[in-house]
Nucleic acid binder design. Structure first.
Length: 314
DNA sequence: AAATGACACAACCGCCGATGA
DNA sequence: ATCATCGGCGGTTGTGTCATT
């Protein structure tokens, strides 16, 4: 990005297109033009608005930043969960995934995936499209996000743990899960902005045709989460993990700031938990005993824990 | 306090499909 | 049928910020 040149305001550059970061004046100009003339016809907009930008650049700036319904700030656990779930289903179809996260742009989701998720894969030296990684996401990350969801739910409402909720599997089979309330909506969680996206009937049909993986969607009539078998299994597994019968899980803080919903470093409270939930750690590969009590240094996952797991998957 | 590195994110690039002349 | 233009998408890069040494 040749910003030094692009930001030049010398007269000889007046006819050149600007590049690089947008200024407040440019933002105002673009916003004003769109409020007067509407979106679209970006090249025409670029010419008539007085902006020395390409139509593409104007479009991108508007859609990713200036548009009023663009949501700023950290992704909520619900949104992260949805991204993981939808990415496992659609891959790098960022715009399609973004359609299911109101206010989030494809660019933002793409950045999230690359900076947060691919980073973990790199540390583990596995590919994000590999089966091992899918398993890691399913068995480690998603349950933890569910825990975060539950925590945020329970902090905003009185404890409603272990409430039985109806689920509809994606093949139409009903099932009850006691994973605790999944606060996709309702008074438990203020999810006006992070609410799940309802799929229209056509899309649900389309999904069912192509969906070999999993999906979280919602029955419009009953407001019941519709999940895949594997996602239901994840939640059941999570319930097993969090059940008092097996002890509790503690979370060692990983705080960026109050609004950050980073996945916290995860630590089972007792070794028995790990056995009971059948963590895939064979005797010969049992990690050091302090793996349960260590202050894990990694940010999102306990890399050692995941590394063990990924080795077993290979 | 300065240098360095890592990180997050905004912005750009190239490609492709749709559309209209 | 062909070509030009446009919009959209996914991949990549540049830059500012923050943390660490």
């Amino acid at each position: 990005m040749s910003t030094s040149k692009s930001v030049s305001s010398s007269s000889e550059d007046d006819n050149e297109l600007r590049r690089g970061p947008w200024t407040l004046e440019e933002d105002n100009l673009l916003s004003q033009y769109i409020s007067d003339h509407g979106e679209g016809r970006w090249n025409l907009l670029a010419k008539r608005s007085g902006l020395k930008r390409t139509g593409k650049s104007c479009r991108l700036r508007w859609l990713n930043y200036l548009k009023p319904d663009v949501k700023r700030g950290n992704l909520t656990p619900q949104e992260q969960l949805l991204i993981l779930e939808l990415h496992s289903k659609w891959g790098n179809r960022w715009s399609k995934i973004a359609q299911h996260l109101p206010g989030r742009t494809d660019n933002e989701i793409k950045n999230y995936w690359r900076t947060r998720i691919q980073k973990q894969a790199r540390h583990l030296k596995i590919e994000t499209d590999s089966r091992e990684f899918q398993e890691l996401v399913r068995r480690f990350w998603m349950p933890r996000l569910l825990q975060k969801v539950k925590e945020s739910s329970c902090s905003s409402a009185m404890s409603i743990q272990n409430q039985e909720i109806p689920l509809v599997l994606d093949d139409g089979v009903s099932q009850h899960s006691t994973v605790g309330t999944i606060p996709w909506q309702g008074p438990c969680v203020s999810m006006n902005e992070g609410s799940p996206t309802y799929m229209d009937q056509h899309e649900q049909n389309s999904d069912s045709e192509h969906n070999s993986g999993s999906c979280i969607s919602f029955s419009e009539s009953a407001n019941i989460p519709k999940v895949s078998h594997h996602f239901a299994h994840t939640m059941d597994q999570f319930h097993a993990l969090s059940s008092n019968d097996f002890g509790t899980y503690s979370y060692e803080g990983y705080h960026v700031n109050d609004n950050a919903y980073e996945i916290e470093t995860f630590k089972p409270a007792s070794a028995r938990v790990a056995q009971d939930v059948q963590y895939p750690i064979a005797d010969s590969q049992t990690p050091p005993t302090d793996w349960l009590s260590n202050d894990f240094a990694c940010s999102m996952w306990n890399i050692d824990e995941l590394w063990q797991f990924s080795k077993l998957q290979k």
